[in-house]
Design a protein around this nucleic acid. Structure first.
Lengths: 361, 361
DNA sequence: CTGAAAGCGCTAACAA
DNA sequence: TTGTTAGCGCTTTCAG
């Protein structure tokens, strides 16, 4: 029979799937015994086990996870809610979480809020309704996001990347302020004095922290005046493009630019290219987030590298601990970033022979 | 009370969550009525509706999606299984699927097989067990992958990006052979005669098709001999790096390189840089997959742009149709790619004024 | 318009 | 070792 009409290609009786009762009947045992074979939850005679397994094969039986979850009042599914799936920074975090989930024999469902608080709310609700075992989330907003309903219902929550909720949740973040400070100081060390700054939304802790770091570094310059030099954006490429355009088309454009994440950096580089400016001669650039192709850009881009995989890994371990019953006070893990210096920020030396890393920031 | 001990921060009676019965009691009605209010499935008196809603608020009741799914024998959850979440090509497909899922009022759970057939099998099993409404998958292998168990259990499957199963499934793919042919022809038109080719695993249809397109174009050259010019890889950066190194360190290295996807291209560009070769003078490059930063590379990279968002969108619409009961024969959607010519492949003209697109391939 | 009762598929307690 | 029974939380007949 050809497979015309996928949907009608069912097994077993016309409607519904094969159940544990079907298997039990077919093997001449009780449903409980089938369950025991399935889960190895109790001793079952060899010959019986044999018969049951054969029945399972023949009927192509697949246990219904939904029923199992309902009965056991628990799931082996973790929820991971990230704020931008198109951002390689977050997908790298995902990889870290994934590997840990697998170690915990749990599966991961991934949702993407796309920096949109409404989508985020919807997905958090879905996760709560589906009673996932735990959730890792990078909040779309540090003002409007609210995973407390989950916690109130006993579902542990770990926050990543962005600070949130004043120590109410476990969290894994980067020392953003210090990292930004070091990045901007590096520009200063290269002789830059007017330095522009592009960060994401002011509702996101990373933006706030990175701006604070920028100000820490700038405050030490004489006659520092940031008017016209700081732009908030949307953490995405288009926003970075527009913000760069605004800053660079001012009467007194800066000599250097500090960009608060990878996608905005791509946008800013586009804007710089469109304006016909040369990097680093006309404008030096340092950006947050190392990407696989940072060194292949024209010119190679100086970046702040975050330990993304580890962020995911640590968050996942903490979540696993909570799911396992650990109930100490919320922990905050702060990881270090490092500055990777490349040609885009070098104003003094013309061409370094190799890319140099200035240790931990 | 401080939030020490997240896990103990529960609501309602000590164990378990608030159920529909709790709400019913609290509002002085039957569970059935609460259900009706919740779903708007039947007329309920205004004052009763009021009382129920208030009880829901006060008790912070959240309906249990698991129980609902079990009872209704259906879910509003779609599964999306992609083969590499770190590849922006796939995450762009995700965006297309996501938006359609939202239109269908369904939520999306995303899984990442990481080009690993075992992980893929596990996730397909999870999706089957969780009885998702339908699945979109980009198979990790065209030999070992097997979503038929899903179809056999009445769960519709749409395949994206990679051909699979001889027309047994709905699928959305690109005209890879024609696109590769056009890309290589473009290199030939630039005067290249020895052209290297790096594609992914030979178990993936896209690799096979793109290699076929390469051969189509090369076969027209006199004295064509591909020995030492073709390398299979793993569709990832490291694989591309190593493959490029192998090809370029041969006695007679090629004058141009055709790379079968974005991540391998990044690796190949790295290898070229490490060998100290100049693009395009020493080696011209064309690669599959446009990326946001393709034009920012040194030099700007000539790419084959695939309509990724549309791939996801069309797959999602087809899935929605199947879930809605459509049962015609499997459909195959083939979309066109386009070549975006930039400096990396220009051997004749020195510097084009603007990036030019050579229509649809 | 509302309530009572049955049952989705599974597992865990209790019997045998 | 195996079977019987009850019930997870919800929706959906069927009565009223």
């Amino acid at each position: 029979m050809p497979l015309h009409g996928q949907a009608s290609q069912r097994i077993g009786r016309g409607r519904g799937m094969t159940t544990i009762r079907d298997v039990a009947r077919h093997a001449g045992v009780s449903p409980a015994t089938v369950s025991r074979v399935l889960n190895g939850s109790a001793k079952v005679g060899d010959s019986v086990t044999e018969r049951v397994n054969q029945a399972i094969q023949e009927l192509r039986y697949r246990p219904n996870g939904v029923a199992r979850s309902l009965r056991q009042q628990s799931t082996r599914v973790w929820g991971l809610l990230i704020s931008d799936i198109q951002n390689p920074y977050f997908t790298s975090i995902v990889r870290g979480v994934e590997d840990e989930a697998q170690l915990s024999r749990s599966s991961l469902i991934l949702c993407n809020s796309d920096e949109n608080v409404h989508k985020e709310r919807m997905y958090l609700e879905v996760m709560l309704n589906e009673r996932v075992a735990g959730v890792i989330v990078s909040p779309a907003s540090c003002v409007e996001s609210d995973p407390t309903p989950l916690v109130e219902h006993g579902i542990p929550v770990v926050v990543v990347d962005r600070q949130f909720g004043h120590g109410k949740f476990d969290s894994v973040v980067i020392g953003n302020r210090a990292a930004a400070d070091a990045a901007v100081r590096h520009l200063v060390s290269q002789g830059a004095r007017r330095i522009g700054c592009i960060v994401g939304s002011e509702h996101i802790s990373t933006s706030i922290e990175r701006l604070a770091g920028y100000r820490d570094a700038m405050a030490e310059l004489p006659a520092y005046d940031e008017r016209g030099l700081v732009e908030f954006s949307d953490s995405k490429q288009l926003g970075g493009y527009e913000a760069a355009l605004r800053i660079l088309s001012r009467p007194q454009p800066p000599e250097a630019l500090f960009v608060g994440n990878n996608l905005m950096a791509v946008g800013a580089l586009e804007a710089i290219a469109n304006l016909g400016l040369r990097i680093p001669k006309d404008i030096a650039v340092v950006a947050f987030d190392e990407m696989a192709w940072s060194s292949l850009l024209a010119p190679p881009l100086t970046t702040v590298r975050q330990p993304t995989y580890e962020v995911g890994q640590i968050a996942a371990r903490q979540l696993a601990a909570r799911i396992g019953g650990y109930s100490g006070p919320p922990r905050e893990f702060v990881l270090d970033a490092s500055l990777i210096v490349r040609r885009s920020s070098l104003l003094t030396v013309s061409k370094p022979t190799a890319e140099s890393t200035i240790g931990e920031v």
